Simulated scan of single mutants.
Amino acid sequence: MLSSYPFWWFALPVLLLPIWWHRQKRQRLKAEPLATARFLPAAAPEQLRVWQWRDRILLLVRCLLLTVLIAWLAATIFPWRGDTVLLDTGLDKTWAAREIGRAGFADAPRIDLPPDALQWLRAHERDWRPGARLLVAARAESIAMPARVPRFSHAVELLTMPGAANVPAPRPLRHQVALAALSGRDAAWRSVFAAFDHAGDGTIRYVTVAEPNAETKLIVWDMPNAVPPAGWRASDWWIAPASVNRAAFPELEKAATLTINGVLLKYADSPRGRLWASDAFPPRDADTARALYEAWQSLGTAPASAYPTASQALDVARASSSAIIDAKPAAWLGYVLLALFLLERILAHARRN
C-alpha cells in the first residue's frame, strides 16, 4: 500500500502502550473469611502486580487497532493548504511579482513549479481545502498545451509569460534504424531515410546502424534466405518482400492488411516487435517514398510537437472530487479500524464481567 504521508509510520512505537498497560494491571488478593480471623488484627486488602498473558486476544486486538490507525493516517490526506501560487523558478521576478499581485495572490504561499505541472496538480489536488484558489505562474514554454483541457475541483488560473523572440529552435528528434540489407540494396535504403530527413523539415533525423541496441526503434531486414539473430529486438520491423519467409517470420502467414495513401502494408505482432511487410520496401521512386513517409507518419511513429499554453482560467468541476477518488486505499482501512474498535470494546466488556 502506498502512503501519502509515510512519516506516520514512525509512530509504530506507540504499540508498546497496550503492552505496558497490561503489564501495569493489578489483581486484588481474594479474601476468604475464617472463623479464627477474629483473633487477628485487621489488615487492609492488598493488591499484587501480576505479569501474566491472560488477555492475549485483547492485547493483540489493541495492537492491531493502533497499527491500522497509523496506516489509515499514513494513507489519508486531510486538506490543509490554502490559496497557493505554483511559481516557475525561471520566470522573470519583476513580471511575476506584478502579475501575481494583480491576480490577488500577493500574500499566498509559493511552491516551485514541478515537472508536468497540470498532472502533478491533478494528483495532489486533495491537499487543498475546498475553497482554496490556485495560480500557476510559468513561462509559456514550460507548460505544454494538453490535448484536453483538464478540469479541477478548485479554481485554477494559468498565468503564462510569453517567450522571448530569440528562443532557440528545438533539437531534432533522433530515430535510430538498424539496417540489414545486401550490398546492392543498402544504398537504396540509405537514400530512403535521407529523403525522410528532408521530408520532415529537419524535425526528425534517421540514423542507420549495423546492429540494433536499446535506442533502436526500427529494424530494416532485407536479407533473403536469412534468419535474423535471436537477440534482435525493436518496436517495428520493415521486411522486404524477398525476405518474407516462413522460417524467419512465421507470424506473417496470418498477417493483417492495411492500406494507407495507396501503400498496402501487412503487419503482425511477434515477440521481437511488430512486423511490417510491403511491396513498397524499398521505394523505387519519389512518389512511392513520399506516400510511404506519409503513411508511416500517420501510424503515429513521430510524436507531435508541444505547443505552449496560453493564460486562462480553467473550469471548475464541482461534481468530481479527486480527494474521494484518490483516497480509496484509506476507505477500507477505515472500516477495518471501526471493526477492530468494536471488537476491542466487546472483549474489554467481557473481561470485566
Rank of each mutant, 00 (worst) to 15 (best):
L265I: 11
N166G: 11
W221N: 06
K328Q: 10
W237S: 02
E253P: 00
T257G: 09
W232I: 01
A210S: 14
T208P: 07
L252T: 03
A181Y: 14
M223K: 15
R122C: 00
D236S: 07
M145W: 11
L179V: 12
A240Q: 06
Q312E: 10
D236F: 06
H124N: 15
R139W: 08
Q24R: 15
T94Q: 13
I204R: 15
L40P: 02
Q24C: 02
S278Q: 08
I70Q: 03
G104C: 05
I77P: 03
V167M: 10
Q52Y: 05
G163M: 03
R246S: 09
A140Q: 15
L34T: 10
R23L: 05
A256R: 15
V167I: 10
A164R: 14
S4E: 12
D92H: 07
P303M: 04
L159I: 04
D107E: 12
T257Y: 12
L275P: 03
W53D: 05
R272M: 09
R352C: 02
W72K: 09
P229D: 11
A147G: 14
T208F: 09
G184I: 05
P212V: 08
R23T: 03
L59G: 07
I239V: 05
W296L: 01
S142V: 00
D186K: 15
L337V: 04
H22T: 05
S270V: 05
A230T: 06
A180F: 10
L134W: 00
R98Q: 14
A35Q: 11
V177I: 13
L343G: 11
H22I: 01
M1T: 13
A132H: 14
A291Y: 06
